[in-house]
Design a protein around this nucleic acid. Structure first.
Lengths: 341, 341
DNA sequence: TTGTAAGCGTTATCAC
DNA sequence: GTGATAACGCTTACAA
């Protein structure tokens, strides 16, 4: 009978069993082509018969590589980032990397803290969401030489590698569309713009598009709400309480839009018959909930894959375009023209 | 001018600057109370002035602890697990642990592979979803002495630590409710039951509850679909195509229920006026989408917190109840009684 | 309370 | 192709 707790097999055990040195085992396991076929076979045989599992920490310490990529997101609780995360995961997995996830609930200090934790964990690279970050974050990235990509927004300053969308242009696009349909009374249920440049850009795009046609967006028709369904409901409710009802409501994203549509239903209003609700990101769900929801499609899965590949290439020392902007697209569903008021 | 790439500060650098040994620095940083206040201060001062960040791999290698918990989920793409993940994260974060996430798209082989990767990464503990797993998984957990918890289901075999729900009882509960309202023609849009005991238990609970009132569930009124909105739509569509329409459709979870409701809308049916759609899990969204959606509430956030605490306590060597069942609750919204057919 | 020094399990640099 | 062996950066007995 063997031990009850046989300590996990180590490289040396495999070496002993295969009658080779630890160096050879190490090579066989990581660079099979550098080892004679016969030796390779012996090593593999020994490893599997011992149920050998490499010790990640030791490997990381010696090789100075963890094969781990970190991602810091605002939240894991809404589905907006789900596609991106899934795509990141899949791409990294295929390359033998693991994804370490952290979130901060839109709090800049927490963001700095979790980012530090990830760096301490030795991530080989980092995916950050957005371009606005605590200065400490950039300092730590710099000091530790950690490769990173900013995502979901495009860094106009040109100082950081990024893979993003042109949130402002997307907002202009959807607003123009509504204007072309004849809408003149607008409201916006925006996300919280403080330290969130994606939200800022969307709002500013809407403002700019309206202004260029001589239309204003009075303060009482702009409300900022957290990106939740409830936020969308409350936001729209406040807008309706503000005075003459708008014919078009642009929501900061589809989560807010879904909430806004629910509020309309609760008030007996039809969408888009009585009021047109539009959003951003084109979540499958939004379309399902209201087949008349026009929105801007952001290729979020592509974003994840792109960000992952960007980092992977840099880690392999390959040259890469450091800044890129992914195209967004207007998705029109059952739009209704409005008579000019 | 200093170097362009000053290598990251190590423990020894801090020790030198603070004029103490590396052992003292190590203690000061991890067990502050074991060090004289004055020394502690010097060390902290030195560390922060150097921007010292501990090397996680070295720490893990020496201490044999990574302060990382892994979680293996079926998918990150639907919102069902979002609450659980968020709660896990928060609880672990508060205890100084980090969460390493992996998913497998309901594929048992992939599940085994990613689980192995996590063990190789040296996770201190593991959260697994469900009770049905590849035998290799249990073998690896055993061989490596990795503490784990099964979640979302209750392990009746009594062989594994678990924090779960009684999916079968929940299914019985909601079915009884519908029966009490007078429904007699039922259909079920279930999740894929193969190697998913949560789905199996829900289906079997529905069957049992119906059977105890002498009602059957013919094969053509049971369809299995992936947990997506589209799955829900298609599932309900197939049910309607099967013959006389049911008055009550029980969906495997709220994602399917949302899809099913959309299908009803598309067919001009009102819910629950024409047909009653019910689900499981009580996602906020489901209620928002249809305020008449009766469902079973599963305390998913509590589950995450509970699972995390369970592992944390075991890691601290404390005794814990190894198996527990969290209560589920019927949430009735605008139910409509049906005349007995 | 603090210091000394022996690991922790790999990888990587050399010789051979 | 393969084998010694010195790192890798930290923790932790054990000694002082």
């Amino acid at each position: 009978m063997t031990d009850k707790f046989p300590r996990a097999a180590r490289l040396a055990d495999v070496a002993r069993l295969a009658k080779v040195s630890t160096a050879t085992v190490s090579r066989a396991l990581t660079l099979p082509q550098k080892v004679k076929a016969r030796t390779l076979e012996r090593v593999q045989q020994a490893a599997s018969s011992l149920g050998y599992v490499a010790h990640g920490a030791a490997r990381a310490l010696a090789s100075r590589r963890t094969h781990t990529i970190g991602a810091v997101l605002p939240t894991l609780e809404n589905a907006i980032f789900a596609n991106t995360i899934a795509a990141l995961q899949r791409t990294l997995d295929a390359a033998g990397y693991v994804l370490l996830l952290a979130s901060h609930d839109f709090d800049a200090d927490i963001e700095a803290r979790v980012t530090r934790t990830l760096i301490e964990r030795g991530v080989d690279g980092l995916v950050l969401l957005g371009t606005t970050h605590h200065p400490d974050i950039y300092r730590m990235l710099e000091a530790n030489g950690v490769p990173y990509v900013l995502t979901w927004a495009f860094d106009e300053s040109g100082n950081h590698p990024c893979v993003g969308f042109d949130n402002r242009a997307a907002a202009v696009r959807i607003t123009d569309h509504l204007l072309d349909l004849g809408h003149r009374r607008f409201a916006m249920v925006s996300g919280i713009t403080a330290s969130n440049e994606r939200a800022q850009e969307r709002l500013s795009g809407v403002r700019a598009a309206l202004a260029s046609r001589g239309i204003g967006l009075p303060a009482q028709y702009v409300v900022e709400k957290p990106y939740t369904h409830t936020g969308g409901r409350e936001g729209l409710s406040e807008v309706f309480g503000a005075g003459e009802a708008p014919t078009a409501v642009i929501c900061g994203n589809d989560v807010l839009a879904i909430g806004a549509i629910a509020e309309c239903h609760a008030r007996g209003l039809t969408v888009p018959g009585d009021v047109s609700i539009t959003g951003f990101d084109d979540m499958e769900l939004a379309a399902l909930m209201n087949p008349a929801l026009t929105t801007m499609r952001f290729p979020t899965a592509e974003l994840g894959a792109y960000a992952a590949n960007h980092l992977l290439m840099r880690l392999e020392g390959k040259a890469v375009d450091l800044r890129c902007k992914l195209p967004t697209e207007l998705v029109v569903r059952g739009s209704t023209a409005k008579p000019v008021a």
